[in-house]
Amino acid sequence: MTAIPILEARNLTRELPGPVPVTLVRDIDLGVGAGEFVAITGPSGSGKSSLLYLLGLLDAPSNGEVLVDGLTTHGLNDNQLADLRLSRFGFVFQFHFLLPEFNALDNVQIPMRRLGLLGAGEIRDRAEMLLQALGLGEHAHKLPEQMSGGQRQRVAIARAMANDPAVILADEPTGNLDTKSAENVFSQFRRLATDLGRAVVVVTHDTELAARADRRVHLVDGRIVP
């Protein structure tokens, strides 16, 4: 399933400068293709999240490069990186990070409104469709505070899907959920990869869930170990 890597890390190293430099990740080589579901696992402090931020262009590597659609992102400025994130990436974090003043439907619309490719009506229809697909049709007009943790996280997934990204990156998306909700959320990621052909990278410490991914990348002290 790894024909053409949509997202590729080459020789990726990230060090935090300081009196005592800290290496977050070192010499990572990783490719993720369309429809592939990759789980990044490892103990706390192994650099899982740091790797995800590097892959998601949220952080800049000290060395090495990240390629998106086979093109290097090295040397792009902040605005170009932001535009790339907007159109090609969708993020889900451990905390839902929904805007608390906006209801679910509005939250899902925000990335589309920022991109500005669709008209207001199309954006609304698509947001409703996305929520529907995640089983949240009847909760569309609720504020985040009126929903359960699992529901919020599913709204966050709908939002991550808003601009039809090629890559979905998730950082401990089930970390705060009970087993049943975690199961539900995880199966959504599975669906995104298998049915919709997205490249999905999920950081998790839940080995049981990780076992259901197509591929498992285990990190120890910032390095991939087999």
Partner: peptide, 15 residues
Amino acid sequence: KDIGILKSMGFRDAD
């Protein structure tokens, strides 16, 4: 937090 998510979502500094 909102600023963080908006930026990771692809909002530019100027936005």
